[in-house]
């Protein structure tokens, strides 16, 4: 029992970070209908920024979101303008956009690998090796801070979506692109900002994984597959779904991890993906597929 609770604690705190990672992915999908396969590659790129900021400037990896978020935001705007702006309303080109993101992922992976080589890295702030002790339980400090930060960022995101003009525009575009256009939302601008925001969220996630996990350029495929699995579980495009998917799968995988070892914990996510495809292809909170 104690052990089960302990695993639950680990799973939930990791789940918060997974939710942060998945939020950008699902936000972009909701508004633009594009699965960004390069999401985790951008995360790893951001993790490298945090890594060098830590090694070079002594900047704390959690604090380094002040670097990674704006940098990735701007990268997102540029990438959107270069690759997506003109294709998104053209059904023919739209169908290959997912391959464009796939190609971007390869380019990022290869470039990072070329310059920094495929060795394991991580930032190691003191809290990464420390834990709070509470009776029989322990709570790794790194995970705790990362989840706290993730919750803060997700809270801010939620408030932005709920209460600001841009937030209304984003939600409207997610729900019904034509309707949004009809009431005067400039969907092109909204899409651009959403891509930027999604990338900024990837940036923040990168800062978190820089001390939670060890990373290397080729690692992003595993992460993106995990993120996609939990996004599909929650329902593509639904933020709440992503949160639920992240917390539940993260807890399950923590149990698998403790029972069968770390090799098999990613398998949890992939099997969950196939299971959900069999049982409820549109995901827990997803819209019904057309027809």
């Amino acid at each position: 029992m104690t052990q089960a609770i302990q695993i639950l604690i680990i799973g939930l705190t990791l789940g918060g970070v997974f939710a942060l990672m998945a939020s950008g992915l699902t936000l972009i999908f909701g508004v633009m209908g594009i699965v960004n396969l390069a999401h985790a590659a951008f995360m790893v790129a951001a993790a490298f920024i945090s890594f060098f900021a830590y090694k070079g400037l002594g900047l704390d990896p959690i604090a380094s979101i002040v670097l990674t978020m704006p940098v990735m935001f701007v990268v997102g705007l540029v990438v959107y303008r270069l690759f997506f702006a003109r294709s998104i309303d053209d059904p023919k080109k739209r169908s290959v956009l997912v391959l464009v993101t796939f190609a971007m992922a390869l380019v990022i992976e290869g470039t990072l690998g070329f310059f920094f080589s495929n060795i394991y890295r991580s930032t190691n702030p003191p809290y990464a090796y420390d834990a709070f002790l509470m009776g029989p339980f322990y709570l790794p400090k790194g995970q705790f801070y990362a989840t706290l930060m993730s919750a803060l960022i997700l809270g801010a995101l939620w408030a932005m979506l709920r209460f600001t003009r841009l937030g209304y525009a984003i939600r409207a575009t997610t729900h019904n692109r034509t309707a949004a256009e009809v009431v005067g939302v400039n969907v092109d601008r909204v899409s651009m900002f959403v891509f930027g925001i999604g990338m900024a969220l990837a940036g923040a996630s990168g800062s978190m994984i820089s001390f939670l996990f060890s990373f290397y350029p080729g690692k992003h495929w595993e992460w993106v597959a995990i993120l996609l699995s939990l996004v599909v579980l929650g329902g593509m495009g639904s933020l709440l779904g992503a949160l639920i998917g992240a917390l539940s799968l993260s807890v399950i995988s923590a149990f698998v991890n403790s029972a069968y070892g770390p090799t098999w914990s990613p398998v949890t996510f992939y099997l969950a993906l196939f299971a959900i495809l069999l049982i409820r292809p549109q995901g827990l909170l997803g819209k019904k597929p057309e027809l």
Partner: peptide, 17 residues
């Protein structure tokens, strides 16, 4: 072309976007 998951009031607010 409504926003199905928004409330009636929110839909009207979107009208004044």
């Amino acid at each position: 072309s409504l926003f199905p998951d928004m409330t009636v009031r929110e839909n009207l607010r979107m009208g004044g976007y």
